[in-house]
Each structure stands twice: as structure tokens, then as C-alpha cells.
């Protein structure tokens, strides 16, 4: 096994964090923006270059005959090869791609390490089934279809499935984890503002898949505590 504890320590030290850390929404938005920016630039540069070269070297009756050696029918491909320009371009693209992915790796380590680092995290069990989600709170209280959690506090989710493979995801909170029968996968989120967020199943699981939804209601800490105390009476 490789030892990652050193790097994940690095990931957690704010001094050295050149990669984004914070809520999952923040991390995703930062990294996605940089990828989108660079991806767009690279795409435009490469495709423009292609189109310009294709236009520049188009067959044109006004173009003078050149003496470039063209492919001939029945020839064997010549063995001499100029791979120089090719390898330089490859090197350039390799540097960009590798740098980008390595940069995101620190954030990955942070995200992966987070649940075990937090003391006051709220841990909620999520059991997916055809076709809904059952949420179990630390005191054993269960609810279907609605998950309540406090704002500005890390919530750890332990996700499993009762039947087939599902996937619990919430786009606004950037939660996503497979729910597999017989396994528990762990993930976490940190909501930075109160409100109601959507979540849904992201793995085709049967006829009701399109409507396998749940709400995540994020409350102020005090409101959450209030609800937490009374939830067993009301329901």
C-alpha cells in the first residue's frame, strides 16, 4: 500500500494549498472553471490551426505546381520520418494535461480525507431502494424522501442499497456516491447556505428511476437542533 498520509497532511495545511479546498461546491467550481478556461483555449487554438492549415494548403488551380514528393500508387511508405515536431507538440500537451491533473490531485486527497478528520460531523445513513431514499439519523430516527442537515457543518453520508445499484447525488451540494447492495460508501458535504436542494438517483435502476428523488433541507444550526429534538415526537 502506498502511504498518502504525508500528502494529505499537505493538503490540509492552508499555507501550502495552491489547490482549492473548502466545501465541495467551492472545490468543484474552482477546478471546473480552470479546466473549462484552458480546455476552451486549447480547443480554439488547435481547431483554428487545423482549419487555417487546411485552407492554406487547399488544392487550387492558381497554385503553382510544387516539387514536393507526393504519395504514389503501389509505393511502400518511406522509412525516413520526421517525428521531431510531433514529439515537441506531444511534450507540450503532456505538460499541460499532467500539470492540470496533478493540481487537482491535492483537492482529491482533501475530499477523500475529510470525513475522518471532522469531530463534530453529523453522520447520516442513506439507504437507496427501488425507488427512493431512506435516511437514518444517529439516534435511529428514519425518514424517507427528505434529508435535513445543518448549515456550515460537515455532514457525512454512509450510503448503501437495499436492492440494485443506485447512486445518490445532489448537483448543488456536489454530492455523488454509488449505493451498492452489501457495501457502504462514504462521502460528505458542507452546505454554505440554508434552503432546499434537490437530490436524485444517478444510476439507472428500474422503471421508477426518473422519479427517484429526495429533498435536502438545510437549516440554521439552531433550527436543526430544534427539529432534531422534536422529530421523534411529531412523527
Amino acid at each position: 500500500m502506498l502511504d498518502f498520509s504525508f500528502i494529505s497532511l499537505l493538503a490540509r495545511s492552508s499555507l501550502l494549498s495552491i489547490f482549492p479546498i473548502g466545501s465541495r461546491t467551492f472545490i468543484f467550481d474552482q477546478i471546473f472553471f480552470i479546466f473549462l478556461l484552458l480546455g476552451t483555449i486549447v480547443g480554439i487554438v488547435v481547431i483554428s490551426y487545423m482549419v487555417i492549415q487546411a485552407y492554406r494548403y487547399r488544392e487550387d488551380s492558381t497554385r503553382k505546381k510544387d516539387d514536393i514528393d507526393r504519395p504514389k500508387l503501389g509505393e511502400l511508405p518511406p522509412q525516413e520520418d520526421d517525428g521531431n515536431k510531433l514529439l515537441k507538440s506531444l511534450l507540450l500537451s503532456a505538460v499541460v494535461v499532467i500539470a492540470l491533473v496533478v493540481w487537482t490531485y491535492g483537492s482529491l486527497l482533501y475530499v477523500e480525507a475529510q470525513p475522518s478528520q471532522i469531530d463534530d460531523a453529523l453522520t447520516i445513513g442513506v439507504e437507496a431502494y427501488q425507488f427512493g431514499f431512506l435516511f437514518t439519523y444517529p439516534d435511529g430516527y428514519q425518514s424517507t424522501g427528505v434529508l435535513r442537515a445543518p448549515v456550515d457543518r460537515v455532514t457525512v453520508l454512509k450510503i448503501t442499497s437495499r436492492d440494485v445499484l443506485h447512486n445518490f447525488g445532489s448537483p448543488d451540494l456536489r454530492i455523488k456516491a454509488d449505493a451498492a447492495p452489501g457495501q457502504v460508501s462514504e462521502t460528505w458535504f458542507l452546505a454554505e447556505s440554508t434552503g432546499t436542494y434537490d437530490s436524485a438517483c444517478y444510476e439507472l435502476c428500474g422503471a421508477g428511476h426518473s422519479y427517484m428523488l429526495a429533498e435536502i433541507i438545510i437549516l440554521e444550526e439552531s433550527e436543526f437542533e430544534q427539529w432534531n429534538k422534536t422529530k421523534n415526537n411529531g412523527n
Binding site: F28, V97, V101, T104, V111
Partner: peptide, 19 residues
């Protein structure tokens, strides 16, 4: 290919999964 590199970054892949 360019949009595939997005998916190669695990941290982005988590959110793109199933979308």
C-alpha cells in the same frame, strides 16, 4: 478528447458521474 480530460481528473469525475 478535451472534455474527456475533465473526466480524468477524479475530483471532477465524481460530479460528472451519471450526468
Amino acid at each position: 478528447g478535451i472534455t474527456g480530460v475533465f473526466l480524468g481528473a477524479v475530483i471532477l469525475d465524481y460530479e460528472f458521474r451519471g450526468t
